[in-house]
Amino acid sequence: MDREKNIIDLLENTEAKELVFEGKEQVKSSILAYIMQQSGVVKPLYKNVALMAASILLLVALGLGIAYKASEVTLSAGLESNAVTLYSNVQIVLEPNASVTYNSFTWRFNRELTLRGVASFDVSKGKFKVLTQAGEIQVLGTQFKVAEAENALEVFCYEGSVQVKTQAGENVLHKDEYLIFNGDTNAVGTIELPEVITYDNVPLEQVLQQLKTIFGLTIEMQGDYADIFYSGAIFTKELAMSLEMLFGSCNIKYTLNGTHLTLY
């Protein structure tokens, strides 16, 4: 009887080995992403939506008058975004490494420029055309953003309307519509910041850039995260949960003080 009691004491006072659930955060992300998809709150993901909105605010706030006498003019952003105004009625925000080239002599009767990279435009009046390798965008008094890369093109229209021509055909975009040309087809949709953004093996720094833009964070990185990739999701209305999922999955310690995020 005593021995049986001893056995039960041992069972009640020992602990089973605790196994670590390595993929816990990733599984959680997958489950929540599925729920979001099923509940219909996930919209097509496009890049830098919030950055684009911030850029437009920047456009309104900033305006630089630049006059060029040379006929062929190229404006480049370098490593940081750059806001410029052409002839007082075309405002452009060039994102890092983007450039536009136009002819100042022909500008008076043919307002068109060639874009390399990503830029937002605010055209107050008159015809205006943006040329890219993948297609061209004809506008009439509007705010819009263009991202081009080789044979791909993304156009986001915030005000007025734009006509987009690609190899796949022509589309007219109205306010809050976007078009994505992937080299084969034009996909048109409504601009809306998705509630959930999912990632599949995306560099952590790219995810951090989006978090920064969406939540207005300042980020201090005390380590090197260049080789870290993230598969999972972030919630555009849930900062705490997003940070927990992201950094839990990447095994990175962090602190959030107000809007200042520090990674260790």
Partner: peptide
């Protein structure tokens, strides 16, 4: 179908289920 409720349910039981 509340996503936060599912997240809470998962947080509470994931380790136990895995073990």
């Amino acid at each position: 179908g509340d996503s936060k409720a599912f997240a809470t349910l998962y947080d509470q039981y994931a380790d136990m289920l895995y073990n």
